[in-house]
Design a protein around this nucleic acid. Structure first.
Lengths: 211, 211
DNA sequence: TCAAGCAAAATTGTCGACAGGCGACAATTT
DNA sequence: AAATTGTCGCCTGTCGACAATTTTGCTTGA
């Protein structure tokens, strides 16, 4: 719904999301708002406290680091599976197109949208890993990562370089070597993890406590 | 709530769970039942279809296998982390007590309860891994695994042996070798995966299609 | 000036009711 | 006899209202 858009950018972590206010704004009853709230809660974007309502989820850098470690576990295996199941050639055209799009967006300094495509690139791989559970977990992660990166002004110093780094993954997929593919993804996510978590720690230091 | 108990045993996968019926039975309005339903949905025990309501989640053996592969990814790293963070000695007494309990239950042929403690054993490790995200994913997995194993009559041929196999994990934790610990968990879950998924495939073959 | 207590406002949790959608069954047609 | 259409009933999705709880703001006293 529209609520996603709101959470993605406008609202700050910790902000209260009163269901009665949302209901008034959207001109609907509170019931559907509640439903949507639960949905966003299970997506990890909101938390609900008893008798207090919904709040935009706060996240500290340690938690974000945990998130990236989980992501690493999933995508590492997913990438290996794509190779093992022989799905590489099938998805490489899509992946290349997504890299192109990232590069375009990096030139226009459309960082938020670039990260969106970035996550889609990774989703394509996970989607074709043949493990549905991986995809379900990834989708939850991705929405949180998107929300977090939206908070950081300059996530990457060289967006174009980040975009082009994805070629290494495609190259590894092309070799057909399961281990090489796994390690390429390992490295790739490790770099992202360091960059994003690092920026986030800086943000924390500036504004005190959790964001 | 009570709903958990119902799902855990009584209801069969695919069964419809009409919120109005539940509401009547419990003597409350439909609103709180809906809430609980959403909760169980996000726990992966129910699925909801538009305008049709909730159904007990069906699962096929491939999906169960995916579940175990995900579990493997998580627990493997969690175990390594416990060693790396030096938390082993702190949790070993708890783990040993849980193994004792499993052995007791295996002698009384209380298989369902034994599996409950089994999952608690694994949860203890994940809980102390220092990665909150691992625990969140594990808890979701665990409820589904418990529900699945409840469907299988004889999950393990030698419950006592399964219980004692956990000693190998504790031993590996004691060595303080990260790799050894990871591999011990790898092996342990691999065995369980084979057994549970195997039994499940048999169950599928007997009763046709998905369970 | 500040703290504590109290009352009013706002917000959530729950309720019963109504409208719309879906599936099942019966009636009709081919 | 099989297939299609029409009808009925049950269930969900949504609504407005009330009760319980929390928050806010004001008053009162030191």
């Amino acid at each position: 719904m529209l609520t996603d858009a709101i959470v993605s950018g406008r609202l700050k972590p910790g902000d209260r999301v009163a269901e009665s206010v949302i209901a008034r704004d959207l001109g609907v009853s509170r019931a559907p708002v509640r439903e949507a709230g639960r949905l966003l809660e299970s997506a990890g974007l909101l938390v609900s406290k008893a008798n207090r309502g919904f709040f935009v989820r706060t996240i500290d850098s340690d938690d974000l680091d945990s998130l990236y470690e989980l992501r690493l576990c999933i995508e590492r295996e997913a990438t290996a599976r794509v190779v093992r199941e022989g799905r590489s050639s099938e998805i490489i055209p899509t992946l290349l197109a997504q890299i192109d799009e990232m590069i375009d967006l990096s030139q226009d300094s459309q960082l938020i949208y670039q990260i969106g495509i970035d996550l889609q690139f990774h989703r394509t791989i996970v989607e074709h890993s043949g493990n549905r559970r991986f995809l379900a977990v990834f989708d939850k992660l991705a929405s949180e990562i998107q929300a977090c990166t939206a908070l950081i002004e300059r996530v990457f110093d060289e967006p174009g370089k980040v975009a082009r780094n994805h070629y290494l993954i495609v190259d590894a997929l092309e070799t057909g070597d399961e281990t090489a593919a796994r390690e390429a993804m390992d490295y790739h996510i490790g770099v992202a993890r360091e960059a994003v978590v690092g920026h986030f720690r800086k943000l924390e230091a500036e504004s005190g406590a959790q964001v």
